[in-house]
Amino acid sequence: MILALAVLAGLFVAVLPSVTDAQLIEKIFVTHTGGVVKTTGEVIDPVYVESSMEFDPMEYLRDFDYGEISTLADGTILREFTITAEDDKIMEVAPGVFYNVWTFNGTVPGPTIRATEGDIVRINFINNGSKTHTMHFHGIHPAEMDGVFEPVGPNGGKFTYEFVAGPVGVHPYHCHVMPLEEHIVHGLYGVYIVDPKESRAPADEMVMVLNGLDTDFDTENNFYAANTIPFYYQHHPIQINTNELIRIYVVNMVEFDPINNFHLHGNLYHYYPTGTYSVPSFYTDMITLSQTERGIMEFEYIYPGKYLFHAHKVEFSEKGWTGIFLVSDEDSAVGS
């Protein structure tokens, strides 16, 4: 009996929470609703805690890859891109959360490929992953350039995609290997923009890929974001100016959930579905997008200040798909 009690006492001690002296410094943090909380522990907060993210959504936002440009004998412009696929990278996708991302050129989303209608786009694709991958572009191209029936083998497999850029608009590209959902949710996608020959009005242009991360593989997204990192543009507001045309190329790459949407505060935007026509279809502050649905949004702010933009499917916004435009009252040059 005494032995039994000793064993029980041992178990009891073993399961008591232990406290070390080192952490007894009080910290204060403010909740999203303004409450002030004091703690001797650590603060975990997806909105305010900075982390050592490798991927910089602010850099990605306005980064366009026009390729290596050369002019052919007939005067056609050739744009050459080298895209490498990998699937072994572990990236911090939210503060403290590490996830195996599959990448085109090392990032999720991959580089924004940009060409003008009629240019020749040549993609030198290298698959350095451990699985078969391809690049499938939405747009108009010959069947053998579709990246579906031409699997590119792992560990250095190569393929050259070549097609005439078109039609005008904003399109996604992604890996098209089965199981497709798996290859997409891990991050093998990006944006492909075809500019009209007569260029659009000058604007502060940006790309937003609306995406989700299923970090526990239960076919439900744990995180949502504009450009991969949850809440990023909420703690790093996007700086824009009053009376300056803003143009966002929006592509919805969320899997599992049938829809996503984009709501803008304090303003409305002109919406060009797929960006194929030069006349906007809507003037609204709310557009609903299904898988790979995309379009161009154009707006200007009159009043300076902080404006939210987020999914009005609030579950998505409270799991990361939310951001802020910080509008400054400057009559600075358009397109700065």
Binding site: H32, V37, V43, I44, P230, E318
Partner: peptide, 26 residues
């Protein structure tokens, strides 16, 4: 690393700390 209420992320404090060894509690 994250806490949520009804599947919506919330800021939180972990006491004494967020690193848990086997059978350790916070």
């Amino acid at each position: 690393v994250m806490a949520d209420v009804n599947d919506r992320f919330q800021p939180a404090a972990v006491e004494p700390d967020r690193f848990l060894e086997r059978y350790e509690a916070s």
